[in-house]
Design a protein around this nucleic acid. Structure first.
Lengths: 208, 208
DNA sequence: TGTTGAATGGCACGGAGTGCCGTTAGAGTG
DNA sequence: CACTCTAACGGCACTCCGTGCCATTCAACA
């Protein structure tokens, strides 16, 4: 039933435009009444991509069930990949949604709001795991935003390349590559290593 | 006139709630007709924080007029601070807006959409300046998101601390500190420094 | 067979946003 | 002062979104 309404909405939106399609059109196309539509969706915009709640829940689950000793970057990557799987499981509708979201202002704004929730979730989980670290919540905010941006960048490239199923592994590799440049464990370690080596070099120089 | 409508809207929203305030209420409170309201604002949500277009324009101007040899981090910091000035110039209404935006879902979503536009702008400008660099647009996307997150984090902390005008310099310092952990020039340089120092240490050790 | 509960759909209402048009104020001419 | 022209204003009416209310249907169950 939900599925029927979603497909009807996506088809009508792509065929005759978002603003030109009324909720009555969608309901009639799915063979139900207008009132029933609003029982399944909070609004007209929700008829496209109703899976975000599921994605958020899966990310939260990954963080909740992760072993405390697992490296933070590993947890983040696993959380991101669960969302990938949601998209990769249905590349066809993912492409249609992508096109719609990127040309209809109302849907673009709604997508931005959802991305905002993803970012907030990552930031919250990272902050909980960076408690005590110097500027922990700052690092969490910056890293959370970077993670979500990397994720979106990987998805966008995959979709721009046609959304073929062969590219799914490239999509994941892309996300990992971007995640490697995040300021998680890497940056502080490098700084520390540099300082330590600098001191060692100076002391050795004095000895020589 | 715009200003009257904005203050009327903010006051009514805070006093009796967003959903409970109609556009007629706002227009009547400002002494104009309902139709006039929609000539000044695209919608009810625009009556709060109508300065985002100006902020986006100022950022674009900073990037457009920056000298080509100026370090990228410096340009980013200057662009961010022009937006700070927009908030810091009127701390009182900034606090009211902050409270409203963070408790009204519709305004929160709209704010997220605006943050999305800021992020897109930074990403675009960074990508143009990272052309040719390995994974330039990936770095641009990640860095743009990180910059905006750092900016928001600094603003949020400033507002959470009461939004006093004495904290404006602390706000800027905060933004700079967070920007320092961004993967712009720093991370590659650090890596290079570490490798160079490692080699120097090994050669000194062999000599000793 | 009677009953209960959940899903449905029709109806009506309030509010957002928009097009149209008459009215008015205010600036610039003779 | 009288006239005109332009731009903003405000009222009116309309479409559509979203929601509360209620009657209907249908299936499960005692």
């Amino acid at each position: 039933m939900r599925r029927d309404l979603v497909t009807a909405a996506v088809n009508l939106f792509t065929a005759q435009g978002y603003d030109e399609t009324t909720v009555d059109d969608i309901a009639a196309s799915a063979g139900v009444g207008r009132r029933t539509f609003f029982r399944y969706f909070k609004g007209k915009e929700d008829a496209v991509s109703p899976d975000h709640e599921l994605g958020l829940a899966r990310i939260a689950e990954v963080f909740a069930t992760a072993h405390p000793t697992e490296p933070l970057l590993s947890v983040v990557l696993r959380a991101g990949e669960t969302v990938f799987d949601l998209y990769l499981s249905d590349p066809g509708t993912a492409r249609k949604r992508f096109a719609l979201v990127h040309e209809v202002p109302a849907l673009r704004d709604r997508e931005a709001a959802m991305v905002h929730r993803y970012r907030r979730l990552f930031t919250k989980e990272l902050a909980a795991r960076l408690a005590g670290v110097e500027d922990g919540d700052l690092r969490a905010a910056v890293t959370g935003a970077a993670v979500v941006a990397a994720h979106n960048q990987a998805l966008r490239r995959w979709l721009a390349d046609g959304g073929t199923s062969e590219g799914t592994e490239a999509c994941r590799a892309h996300f990992r590559k971007v995640a490697d440049m995040l300021p998680l464990e890497q940056a502080p370690d490098l700084e520390q290593v540099a300082r330590r080596l600098e001191r060692a070099a100076r002391s050795l120089e004095r000895r020589a």
